[in-house]
Nucleic acid binder design. Structure first.
Lengths: 250, 250
DNA sequence: CGTGAAGTTGAGTATGCTCAACGGTGGTGG
DNA sequence: CCACCACCGTTGAGCATACTCAACTTCACG
């Protein structure tokens, strides 16, 4: 994971600070194989480099807010983001967490349908939407990849509906930890112990639970020997197979 | 709404019966403007006609099951379908309901990630996946449309996460009726009274509630004057603005 | 009409929420 | 350097929303 220079953190009035593009930022991109950019050839990568800018965020910094004109799309290159929707009275539903390689900002309207902000220090690669759409027209491989990313996200969202609508608190937390572990492995990180950078409140708002219930359920899973809480927000899954069975409702 | 000849209903062993393609079935398609086929020119429509087949389903007939090889994609031309996922012990989460114009079967794996079956008599237009993907490569407009459909579905799924995770039973039912009404209008049907063809159990499995709670909540909305239950599964929304406010959590 | 499925209503309960207190921890400033 | 403070996490007690189990009604279809 990259480290961040705190001096570069943007003030509140300009939360998503775009750094000047390097000469060929995309050529050296360490997470390219995970992103929508994966299928691009050198020539095409050069072109996409021209329209890419880097954005860095501090914990809590907004990337964009629901309802805002959707001018950019992003690739996460480091850190953790949270994507969420709000009700008028402040109830929050976290739609998902984003890690290195994840794509964000796909909107079918002219405005974002959700808000996104930083959980940890994070870095993203930013593309103006209109210019990327122009590239999509010329690079069918990129469009195919976008469709693939969108259908994958759709499948993930549908799986989460099953979690939210039909699983118990215990099953929800077990599913969450299992999925987080699998995603860490998919991007080449350690899946066990798994890094859990978000707060109990974030997890609750993701799973349709309160912080108290999340905390109690962690405790329950811990005292029953399925997991162990390590320092630095790490969770060791001590009985992976049993945890998976709980997650599946068995 | 089209009526269906019960004699054409497929037996249990061949639930999704494909009828012989007509000469130019797509030319006369009454819901084309709603579907992924909307942007196609006559020439292209002719070509997609060649690979299209018609499927008719009786209430309860499966279209496909989760885990089955994803050989086809479909456009709904008439009737109502339900799409759902199951847990091992039988708990069911309905992912969505499909009406005329809706697209179904997008899969990023080789298998379907959910099951789909008929709520009412229904008709669909079926395309072999590999042959449609071939067309996608040659008709960028079609691919763009597919991406647009996928991002729209993603936005709908994310909205449903908010419903499942953070709304009360009353808000869920109000949201459900409001959305159903809007969708009916979007395909040129009457949004009020709105046709509600699915059972209380289906609605419960869609909203993360039991049938009893769905029934009680309908009664509550009825006695308080927000809705009236009409014959033939129609619901009249007697106080649309108030219902919308309940749906928004106000 | 008879029958079975779907819907409604009631009574009691449990899962997860609310309100509250307390402990740990990391950041900040005296 | 350490004391303070705010935030996060944990735990407890009581409660409410929605669930379970059950009976009864309505409706569609023979």
């Amino acid at each position: 994971m990259a480290s961040f220079d705190v001096d570069k953190i943007a003030p509140a009035t300009e939360p998503a600070r775009a750094l000047a593009g390097e000469h060929e930022p995309c050529q050296g991109c360490t997470v390219r194989h995970l992103t929508v950019c994966a299928p691009l050839a050198d020539e095409e990568l050069h072109e996409i480099s021209q329209i890419a800018q880097t954005v860095e965020l501090s914990p809590g910094d907004p990337l964009f807010d629901e309802g805002e004109p959707a001018r950019h799309v992003f690739n996460v290159t480091a850190g953790t983001l949270r994507v969420y929707k709000l009700l008028a009275d402040g109830r929050r539903q976290v739609i998902g967490f984003l890690f290195a390689g994840d794509f964000v900002g796909l909107a079918n309207n002219e405005t974002y349908a959700y808000s996104a902000d930083a959980v940890t220090h994070a870095a993203l690669c930013r593309f103006p939407r209109t210019r990327l759409e122009n590239l999509l027209g010329r690079y069918p491989k990129l469009q195919t990849r976008m469709l693939s990313v969108a259908s994958h996200e759709l499948a993930v969202a549908q799986e989460q509906m099953l979690v939210l609508g039909r699983k118990t608190a215990k099953e929800k937390i077990a599913t969450f930890l299992h999925t987080l572990s699998r995603r860490a492995e998919a991007r080449g990180q350690n899946g066990n112990p798994v890094h859990v950078p978000m707060s109990r409140t974030d997890i609750g708002d993701y799973l349709g639970l309160t912080t108290e219930t999340v905390s109690r359920t962690f405790t329950q899973l811990r005292t029953r020997g399925y997991i162990a809480l390590r320092s630095g927000g790490k969770v060791e899954i001590t009985a992976p197979e049993s945890l998976r069975e709980i997650a599946e409702g068995l």
